[in-house]
Amino acid sequence: MSELATSVARDSPTMRNSFVRELRAGVAVSGALLLLGLLAVAWHGSAGIAGVSGVPPLSQFGTDLLAGQAWTFLWLGVAVLALTPVVRVAFALAQFAQVKDRDYVGLTAFVLAVLGVSLLVGVTAA
């Protein structure tokens, strides 16, 4: 670790801890799903996964997931990773709302809204 600096942080330690836990959980879950997916590829063979991306049809996703299809694990792993920063912003919004910090509720709500628009633009462009 290169940063040994500590500081008298002016942000709430609760919020910092929630970020640390959330980021580490996101990395762990996403990494586990990707590893599982690649092991499934090694076991079952990789046929079919190259073309699969984007939003899968929900019905097919469910049955494929239960059948242990590799692509469902890989897609979930990538989705969990992509949503990790989004959840972090949502955590911040909730905690700023709790202490009624209006400026930061506004800033974090704006960022969350932009990320929501990103998702919608992607779905529409698909």
């Binding site: 997916g37 996964i49 190259a50 699969v52 991306s53 984007g54 939003v55 692509w71 890989l74 897609w75 990538v78 989705a79 992509a82 989004v86 990320l115 990103s118 998702l119 633009v121 992607g122 779905v123 462009a125 698909a126």
Partner: peptide
């Protein structure tokens, strides 16, 4: 998120 849901993320 745009690329992921637009289907540009090759797993």
């Amino acid at each position: 998120l745009v690329y992921l849901f637009a289907g540009d993320v090759v797993l």
